[in-house]
Simulated scan of single mutants.
Amino acid sequence: MRIREVDLGDDSALAAFHAVQVDAMVWDRPSGWIRPLGQLVTQVQAGSPYYRPVLVAAVGGDGRFLGVAESGFSLQDNTHLADLEIAVRPEVRRRGVGRALMEHAERRWRTQGCTSVCGELHVPSGSALDDTPGYLFGRVFGFDPVHQEDHLVLDLPVDGGQLVELAARAEGIGDEEIVTWLDSCPDELVGAYAALRTQMENDVPIGDVDYEPVVVDEARIRSEEARTRPHWVRLVAAARRRGDGTMSGYSCLLVSRSDHHVVQDDTLVMPEHRGHRLGTRLKLATLRIVQSDFPEHRMLHTWTDPDNHAMYRTNTDFGFVARERMHELQRKDG
């Protein structure tokens, strides 16, 4: 077995890399969402001024990929922090493949100057983290749990009567109007939208993750829109106060162009506007568009901190059910 970095321009190598991730996902996470190959290819080949991916493979004597590691390094913010995901084919586990990939990753992030590394571990809802092989593996290399979120899934379509009931609960509360857009934020709203996104960076629960909130500006938003457009329809609903046009919240869904999955990106209500079911109104606006314009989609995913009681309650009101718990594991070397 040898460890080598994957050429990001080699489509066949990327397909082999992706196949290992799929095998591991199917084995470990039957409720998980599998990123399509095309999305991986775009992510690593399109380039970003904010993030640099590094893909590594453990290659057997026959040239077959036995395991893979996906790392990422921030280029402008949080340059001290790397992220890491390791996947090993089920049939070759406990043979040193994961260890070899981790040791290579350690050398790579030290060369990059990173002092913190984070990775995600998913376990079925109700399962004990301490009994999970991935957790025990991480502990050997000095990783500790620092944050957790539930992976919640909503089967689509949602019954129309339930949507009417949810709308009735929020009717007449507040004086906001809901505006929506697809793919690109209108120029006249992008400044206010950037302010909401920056607030989200500061408000979203992240536990003890060694991360500094980012200031989101128009350039970052436009770069993000361009990168996601080939594989996702970006659907945003924003709340705007009728009296003065102040933006008070938003919710964003990513609708896959290649399968029947929808991913909830963010939902934020500004602090002074909370407690008036504005989050429900925003989620209703996006869900209605999904069900009318993308009726073939069958599953909506979101991730919510179980201690974020208000958002968790909003999600369960819609019918989301917890399928997994995501544990963020972190190692700090400096």
Results as ranks from 00 to 15, higher is better:
P186C: 09
D11G: 05
V236K: 09
V26F: 02
R222C: 11
H276D: 09
V54A: 14
V179T: 08
L136G: 08
S31W: 02
M270G: 13
V290Y: 12
D11F: 04
R227F: 01
L8D: 02
R257P: 04
N78H: 08
A237Y: 03
R274T: 10
Q162S: 14
D159F: 03
D265Y: 13
R197G: 04
F320G: 05
Q39D: 08
D77V: 11
L254Q: 15
R107I: 01
V204R: 11
H151N: 07
A168S: 14
D150S: 10
D266N: 13
K283L: 03
L37K: 02
R331M: 06
Y193H: 14
N78S: 14
N78D: 09
A24E: 00
L55I: 07
L278E: 10
R52F: 04
R227M: 14
A194I: 02
L81K: 07
W27K: 05
P90Q: 03
R331K: 14
R298E: 12
L136H: 11
W109Y: 15
F137I: 12
T79Q: 14
R4S: 15
Y211L: 14
G142D: 03
D23R: 00
S258V: 15
A322D: 03
Y312T: 05
T198G: 09
E85V: 09
R169C: 05
K283V: 04
L14Y: 10
V22P: 01
G9M: 00
E324Q: 15
V262L: 09
M270W: 10
P186K: 05
G96Y: 00
F143D: 11
L182P: 02
L129Q: 11
P145Q: 13
R220Q: 15
R240G: 07
R94L: 03
G63D: 03
F143Q: 08
R95E: 15
A19Y: 00
V214A: 09
P205Q: 12
S31C: 06
P306E: 05
T267V: 12
R222G: 10
L84T: 09
L282T: 07
L81R: 12
R222Q: 09
G119P: 01
S71P: 01
P230Q: 14
Q264W: 04
G275N: 02
W232P: 01
M247I: 09
L163I: 06
Y250T: 15
A13M: 01
H297K: 09
G279W: 01
Q45N: 05
V59P: 05
L84G: 11
I178Q: 08
D28Y: 04
R169E: 12
V97G: 04
E91Q: 10
L156S: 10
H147D: 14
G67S: 06
D150M: 08
E176I: 03
I289G: 06
V209T: 12
I221M: 13
R313S: 13
S71Y: 01
L253C: 13
D183E: 14
K332M: 07
